[in-house]
Structures are given as C-alpha cells and as structure tokens.
Design a binder for these strands. Structure first.
Length: 740
DNA sequence: CTTTACACTTAGAAAGATTTAA
DNA sequence: TTAAATCTTTCTAAGTGTAAAG
C-alpha cells in the first residue's frame, strides 16, 4: 500500500488546447473538464473483487494523463486526433455479470416494459382479519398485557372498542393535519415566516472501555488514550463488514487513527495488521445482542425515552404549525462508508461539536440553547432556506443540513411542484423530441452531442451526469459524463440493428448495463463522437450539464434533465396501469398489476438493491413448500379419482358428497399452489429490483390515488403510513379522473 | 465566463419493528 | 414461543442544479 491514495489531486492540466483549427466559430465553447488524471492512484488491490452483486466494476486503473481534450469542432471535419502520447491504458477490469436488461424498442418514447413479473400482494381479507387481531393484542399489551389465556378471553366488544379507538385516533390526526395545499403560496424565495426549534440532538459522549476489555498490539495489551480508543472502537465495530478487509479502507483508517493517537501510541502502533481488536469487537457484538434480548418492558421504556427525545428535538414550529424534523440528530462520529471504490472510505468522520453548527431560525423565536458549556458556531435568521441547522462534514468538506420531514409543508409543496413541472413537460415533450431529432443533424458538434445526450436521458432515463472531482469520489458517471469505454456499438446484435451496449457505474456505484437499439442517426453520431478517442475520453466532449440544462430551460421554464426521469417514470406508471387494468380482478390481482407497473418503472430507472442476505435460503424454502404442495395435490387428485370411481353408477348420496369434497380439496390445493408459484416468480424477479425509490421519488402520487379510487382498492394496500403522510396533499386533492 | 459554494433531492444499506411460519 | 421473513424507518452518501464568487 505504499502510497495509496496518492491524493491524486492530480495535476490539473487545463490543456486548453486550441483545437488546432477549424475556426470553430460556430462551435460551442470548448468545455474544459477537470483533467482526468485517471491514473487515479487507485490502489486497486487486485485480488479482491469478489462477488459483489453490484459490480463495482473495477475498471482497473487506466493511467493516462490528461487527454488533450481534443475537440472535433465541426461535424464533418474529421480532425486530426491530436493525440497524446502520455496515454497509457491498462485494460479494464473484469466486469460483473448481472441481469437487468431492459432492452427497449425504438423511438424516444417511454419504453414499453415487459410486464411479466408477478407481484406480491396476495394479501387481502386475510390481512384485514389479522389486523383486527393485531389491534386487540396491542390493546391488551397496553393494559399491562397478560398471557395467552387472557387474550383468548377478549371479547368481540373489546375488539370493537379497540377498532373504534384506532379510528378515532386517526380522525384526530386528520384534524391536526395542516392542509397547506389549500393555502396561498408565499412570494418567491420565502420559505417561512416563523421558525422555532430546539436545535439538533447530539450523540452521547464516548464512554471509555471497561477494564476487562483490552486492545492488543503485537500480542501485548495496550491501554489507549481516550481519543485513540474511541476510533479503535469504530473499527472494531465494523469488523464483520467487508469494508475492513479492503486495503483502501484500512489504510485510510489507519492514517486517521494515528492522527488521534498520542505521540507514544503513534510510535508504538505502526502496523494495523498487528492490532488485535478482538475483545472490542466481541464486546460490541455482545452489546448488540443484549439490546436485542431486552425484555418487553425494557424495550418499552427505551421506546418511551426515545419518543420523548423526538417530541422535544424532533419537532419544530413553522408558521404556527408543528412539523416533524427529518434528521434532527447530529451524525455521530465513525468511519466514512463511501460506496463502491471510494478513495476516502475508512477515513475518520469526526465528532461534531455545537461550535461547528450553524442554527437557522426566526429572530423572534426562542433561540435554541447550545449544550451546556458550549456555544453555536453561528445563529442566523435566513428564511430563504429550509434548513434549521447545518455543519460542515470533515471527510468531503460538504455541508450537512437538518431539514424537515417529508410530510412537512416545505417538502410537500416542493414535491407537488416537481410533479407539476413533469406534467408540464408532457404537454411539450413531443415538440422537444422533434427538436432533438432534428438537432441530431446539426452542423455543430455541440448541438449534436446535446441531442444524443437528450435522446439517452429521455429514452433511458439516465441521470444528467455532472462532472465530479477526480480522486475525491468513486468513479461513477451519468449521461453527460459518459466516457467512451462505457458504451460499445454493435451494428447488429442478436438480430437487432444499431445496438448500443451500456456498461457503467451510476449513482451509488450501481451498475447500469443495457443493450439498446437506437435510431440510426443516433448510432452514426455515436460513432462519430468516438472517433479518435481512447478510453478515458469523454463521449460528449463538448457538452456538460449546465449547457444541457440551459438549453432545456429555454424550451420550457423549469425544465432540467432530471425532469425527464420524473416524467418518464410517472407516465410509464400511468400507461402500465391502464394496460393492466381489469376490474374483474380480485384485490390481490389488482395489486399484482400495480406492482408490476411499479416494477416497470424501477427497471427503467435502474433502481437496484442487494439481494437480501437470506434470499437463496428463503427461495429454497418456498420451493420446498411448493414441492410438498404439489405432492399433496397429486394425492388429492388420486383420491378424487378413486372417489369418482366408487361413486360411479351408484346414486348413493354419501358417495357423491365425498366426490364433491375431494373436488374441493383439489381445487384448494391448486389455488394455493398457484399462489405460491406466483410468489416465487415474483420474488425471483424482484431479487435485485427496489420498488421503493421510484414510489417515493418519481411516481406522481395522484396517479396511484386515482387508480385506487377507480379500482376500488384501499389506499393503504399501496401506501404505508409514511407514504400516506408524505402524500397527504395528493390523497386529499385527487379525484378518480386525475390524469398525469 | 468558469469555479466553487450552497441547498436540496434521490439513493441503497442497515437497523428496527412487525408479521408469519415453525 | 421462537425464529425467520418481511416491511418500515433511519441513516447518511451521492447525486442535481443554481447562485455567488473569483
């Protein structure tokens, strides 16, 4: 590891080379990218690279120096490649296989998604019953809960009472709700008129280890100073995590840890491999276990204590209304867990002090008290922003904010607005599409690139792709930041023409892999863009997100690249729901359709998750159940046959009844089997698809609310409490005839 | 202009709670 | 009653996009 993160703050070479030529007059300004010193001292500990579901595709480093940003100015001018000798590429790493192949048809239209997939949601009346029962239990518990026998004695009236209570509570809550969507909006930029809160909640101070828990260096016990010990514990707590096996993580941790040590400690502890955190780790595990095994009463006590904190610190008053705060707790110190191959993973995230925190609130409010013996960094009264407190985090140097909960007015209003902008796009999307199709033929390179990028963003729902600072974060890209190695062009592939194969890491290092047939013009342009470029060069070397967004906002006020994602997600949901609509379905089937539509969107947006740890196991369990049910079915069938045989000819009523009974049994078996099989397919298909992100951020809730009304499905089958709170505005205002 | 700072949305993992199965 | 599966909540990283600063 000698020198790992060579802090490649790399030589930024703004080789602002003048494109030797072509009096680029007509051409868009050369964009200067941050030098991609992708030599990025990526200490690629080879070897590792295991089975990681989402491929952290190791693009093993490709060394190079700046690519001289060579720019072809005019389309038809094939420019001399002005190449750069210093460019060395070392192959790209092994790619990880993965499914999610949402091949799409053609035309820049929202794709038609395959609608196979089955969905959960077989719950219906059964669940309702359960719920009632659940309520009953709860009430009992509240009353000091006794054991089973008591439960059994609870009568119908009590169940009724419990239910009534729930309903009443709900109504009360409803009354409390601030119906901000019926109020007039504030003038531009003003977010609130009055804001009062208690300031953020700080994590507890570090408590030193008990004497019998020791850290060993080189086999010998070492009593660490408090700061060093705290950081050591951060590491020890993570030892079951893969992070702690990664070279980068270990190096970063060790470097930062040593900074916390006393001089003596630093002189002694020179090698992480000689550190033994075993006892600390064991202690931590034990604590976790103990917490899990607390008695009901103890858990309740904890819960109540917690609730108190939430009541005190988790709420604020904003313009006469009490609102929940989303993240009122200051992030506790720990080791930075960047995603993918993050160059800073393992670095120490320092403890935040009140002295680091800026408070924002009304001048005429009760100013929050800093913790005893401390003061705030600053108290300001800025009502053009929505945050209540902020601080600067030390690892990336970025700002962190304390903001309101998603069910607040501030967040809700913005969310609503977001969907309104997307709906507006619907009215002009045809014109915009026509325009970029035209632009594909433009004489200006920049315009063509913009058109192709837009085509991708629209058709594939790619993210905009802002530039990122090299070496500061994992190497991920979006549309505008795609590099030539991220796509492969196939004149024909699997019988399809003009296929573009995408393979890159997007946000959160989630791999995007897709083979997409594109229109010819796009394909030709891509070939052109890739001419004379090498790995590491930008595909769209004359485009960036600012240019793209500037153009978009000229086409429609408020339009930016991300609006396309919202628009295409929502419109896809609406279309799919329409297509799958069948009033004759039972609730379970309707829900299945809904979830399939949801899944189509999740696939479009490439929302993935790690397959649950127990996935294989639970899949096997389910399969076993299916198998045994099959046997049961066979048996039932045999018995039916037998019964029929016996009944034949005879007019003995008893025998006929037996036949009927057997028939029923077979039928029941078949139903259950089918249900389980559907569940299995569904689970399999959902293995690495995350439905929640789109539901939460991309799908206009009014589509779902209207669907529920039309299909006579209860809203809570689709939205849980949190979602219902967040989308209260939509639930309240949406009629059955809403159209996105 | 370009670069950087700021504010806010979007994201999956992990922790926690609840439900279901054994 | 326990264990496992599943759903919900919390957490905070990682994006987008705009405005201010240089």
């Amino acid at each position: 590891m000698a020198e790992d993160s060579n802090s490649v703050k790399a030589v930024e070479k703004e080789l602002n080379d003048n494109p030797g030529s072509s009096g680029d007059v007509l051409v868009v300004k050369p964009k200067k990218k941050k030098a991609k010193a992708k030599g990025k001292a990526k200490p690629q500990h080879e070897g590792k690279e295991k089975t990681h579901r989402k491929m952290k595709t190791p693009k093993e480093e490709s060394m190079d120096f700046e690519d001289s940003g060579d720019r072809r100015s005019q389309v038809n001018v094939k420019e001399e490649p002005e190449e750069d000798p210093g460019f060395v590429t070392k192959g790209k790493g092994k790619k990880r296989k993965r499914k999610v192949d949402n091949t799409t048809s053609e035309a820049p239209l929202p794709k038609k998604k395959k609608k196979k997939a089955a969905e959960e949601g077989q719950e219906n009346s059964a669940t309702v019953k359960k719920k009632i029962k659940g309520k009953k239990d709860k009430v009992i518990k509240e009353e000091g809960g006794h054991s089973v026998s008591t439960k059994k004695k609870k009568t119908k009236e009590e169940i009724e009472a419990a239910r009534a209570l729930k309903i009443k509570k709900k109504e009360e809550e409803e009354k409390q709700r601030w119906r901000w969507w019926e109020e007039e909006k504030y003038e531009d930029g003003i977010k609130w008129k009055f804001l009062e809160h208690k300031g953020p909640y700080f994590p507890p101070e570090y408590q030193t280890l008990p004497d019998d828990v020791k850290f060993y260096y080189n086999g010998k016990p070492v009593k660490l100073s408090l700061p060093a010990e705290e950081v050591a514990l951060f590491f020890a707590q993570m030892m079951d995590h893969e992070y702690t096996t990664k070279e980068v993580f270990r190096n970063n941790f060790f470097r930062d840890w040593r900074k916390e040590m006393t001089l003596e400690e630093r002189q002694l502890i020179m090698d992480l491999n000689k550190c033994d955190f075993g006892e600390l780790h064991a202690m931590h595990k034990q604590k976790v276990e103990a917490r899990k095994n607390l008695s009901k009463e103890e858990k309740l006590v904890n819960k109540e204590a917690n609730q108190k904190i939430v009541d005190e610190y988790g709420c604020c008053v904003l313009d006469h209304h009490r609102e929940r705060i989303g993240n009122f707790k200051i992030e506790p110190p720990g080791l930075f867990r960047g995603r993918g191959d993050h160059p800073k993973q393992g670095m120490l995230k320092k403890r935040i002090q009140p002295e680091d925190v800026i408070i924002n609130c009304s001048k005429d409010s009760r100013i929050p008290e800093p913790p005893a013996g401390h003061r705030w960094k600053e108290v300001r009264h800025d009502n053009t922003v929505t945050w209540l407190a902020s601080w600067t985090e030390n690892v990336q140097g970025s700002c962190k904010y304390v903001m309101l909960n998603a069910n607040s007015k501030l967040k809700g209003e913005k969310d609503w607005e977001k969907y309104e902008v997307a709906r507006k796009l619907k009215t002009c999307v045809d014109a915009i599409r026509a325009q970029y199709q035209e632009d594909l033929k433009s004489k200006q390179m920049g315009t063509r690139q913009r058109a192709v990028a837009l085509y991708f963003i629209d058709k594939l729902a790619l993210r905009a792709g802002n530039e990122k600072e090299e070496g500061e974060t994992a190497d991920t890209v979006g549309c505008c930041s795609l590099r030539v190695e991220h796509i492969t062009l196939h004149d024909t592939l699997d019988g399809q023409k003009c296929v573009v194969e995408f393979d890159f890491l997007g946000k959160d290092c989630i791999r995007y892999y897709n083979k997409v047939p594109v229109i010819k013009r796009v394909f030709k342009n891509l070939k052109l863009f890739m001419e004379n470029k090498q790995e590491g060069d930008d595909l769209f070397d004359r485009l960036n997100t600012q240019m793209l967004n500037k153009h978009l906002s000229s086409l429609m006020p408020g339009l930016t690249a991300k609006v396309f994602r919202t628009y295409n997600a929502s419109i896809t949901l609406q279309q799919q729901l329409k297509e799958l609509r069948n009033m004759k379905d039972n609730v379970a089937e309707k829900l299945l359709s809904y979830n399939r539509a949801n899944r189509a969107v999740a696939i479009l947006c490439n929302h993935q998750r790690a397959p649950p740890k127990t996935f294989e196991q639970s899949m096997a369990n389910l399969q076993a159940k299916i198998d045994s049910r099959k046997e049961q079915l066979d048996l039932a069938k045999k018995e039916l046959k037998q019964a029929k045989k016996e009944a034949k000819g005879s007019s003995d009523n008893k025998l006929l009844i037996v036949v009927e009974k057997k028939k029923k049994a077979v039928q029941r078996c078949e139903e259950q089997l089918l249900k389980m099989e559907v569940q299995a397919t569904d689970r399999e298909e959902n293995k690495q698809i995350a439905l929640s992100t789109s539901k939460l951020n991309y799908l206009d809730p009014r589509i779902s609310v209207a669907w529920c009304k039309n299909m006579e499905v209860q809203l809570d089958k689709i939205y849980n409490k949190t979602l219902r709170d967040k989308f209260a505005w939509a639930i309240d205002m949406t009629e059955h005839d809403f159209v996105f």
